[in-house]
Design a protein around this nucleic acid. Structure first.
Lengths: 239, 239
DNA sequence: TTTGTATTTTTGTGATCACAATGCTCTAAT
DNA sequence: ATTAGAGCATTGTGATCACAAAAATACAAA
């Protein structure tokens, strides 16, 4: 029936207050993040409409939004797909994160009240828990939640959407890459970040965030390892 | 007929090879950039469809894309408008530019061959010309073109879309603000940038870009001036 | 004049349809 | 066996329609 591999996205029930388009957007977004849609796999509006059980219209809108966020790529043939990763692009994405996120953290720090600090601590605790259990899904999800909550403290938000776009581009590759690791070491820099926040030490916070990002991608530290992971993540789509 | 101020966007003829949605997107985008759509002015799909002479469908897609780029804001009432500027947000946007653009320039520098350097020089020359004539429109357009061409030299592009999003958010305010200035001093840092590129001096290039951005917003250097300009740019929409 | 309510209009949303362009498949010729 | 081309199926695009929600309006009472 389908020429390529079948698409299976996790379907969550739609709340009534949410429009179909919003639900489709969230569903496709998390599918991309989870690596459920392989890079290079050609997507069609009608196929997705069938899979999600809606009309083509909401799909079109969600796809356009995701393309604007660089989560999907519209080719010249007006075909849509999850962009494939390259070593250079991966490098650029990581460096862009390092250029933006420490800055965003420093900008958010003055707005962190006791309540938000407590929330950050709570996420951190859950993260340690997930780490002990070796739950990769949970670890990366909580790690992302920590960063998001931190940056979002700044009420005059302009960087978070940009950072989310970077995450969205890195997400699928990171999932596919880490899924094959039996062990995933994360030297936790979040505690260092928390201490910097308590001292209101902007420089220390930036260094902690920077280190956290660098170490989060340390598993592809060598060029060969990176190359292997990229080959692997693009393999299924290459057929 | 219309409850609020009429919308007048500059309509350029559509090329055949361009889809209606793309044309609508470009038209609305440049209208936002030119400040033709006042911040806070409520936009409706049908009204825009009437103004542009197309069906509501392409408008919907273009609006969704522009919203994803933070050029438009979808309110809870699911009403769409150009976001209003605040002093804090303006500050955040400028600082985000300064965090990203010098970095993007440094990342692009190794890829600047003679041809691209020549193109940059040509834009620079046109910029000086526009400056002599006091053509504000042209000055800011060429200035943006210079930056875009510089960053775009990097073939593994991830930052340019983020930067364009920042420009899109600053654009309308800058236009409205500078339009009331009879003189608009621009101390040209582009030549400094060019020299840094020739020497392949990454640090000097970053400093030049940083200075260029800072001086580009110097006309609202004092908090009072900024406040006045914001009041003024939001005035028409406040009625 | 102001305030609350009922009526009318307009709006976003999502589905469906027509059409031209693109990709796919099957066949025939080399 | 490989390839070129014709025919067919599928696609994205853009227009139109139905409907419920929201906003604007009109009108009543204070």
């Amino acid at each position: 029936m389908d020429k390529k591999s079948p698409i299976s996205v996790t379907l969550t029930p739609r709340l009534e207050s949410v429009t179909v388009t919003q639900w489709v957007y969230q569903t496709l977004r998390s599918a991309v993040m989870k690596g459920q849609i392989l890079p290079g796999r050609a997507l069609t509006i009608r196929e997705l409409a069938r899979v999600l059980g809606v009309s083509p219209m909401p799909i079109r809108e969600a796809i356009r939004q995701l393309s604007a966020e660089n989560a999907l790529e519209i080719q010249g043939n007006r075909r849509v797909m999850v962009p494939k990763m390259t070593a250079m692009k991966f490098n650029e994405l990581c460096e862009a994160r390092i250029a933006l996120e420490p800055y965003a953290a420093a900008r958010a720090m003055p707005y962190l009240d006791k309540e938000k600090i407590e929330q950050l601590r709570a996420i951190n605790a859950l993260g340690d828990q997930a780490m002990a259990q070796g739950n990769l899904e949970e670890i990366s999800s909580l790690n992302q939640g920590f960063h998001r909550l931190l940056y979002a403290a700044n009420p005059h938000q302009v960087t978070l959407p940009l950072i989310e776009s970077l995450w969205l581009q890195l997400g699928p590759f990171m999932r596919l890459a880490t899924s094959s690791l039996e062990e995933y070491y994360v030297i936790d820099r979040h505690n260092e970040a928390m201490q910097a926040i308590e001292k209101q030490d902007s420089v220390a916070l930036q260094l902690a965030i920077k280190a956290d990002i660098r170490e989060g991608i340390a598993f592809v530290n060598t060029p060969e390892a990176l190359h292997n992971f990229i080959e692997q993540s693009n393999y299924a789509a290459a057929n």
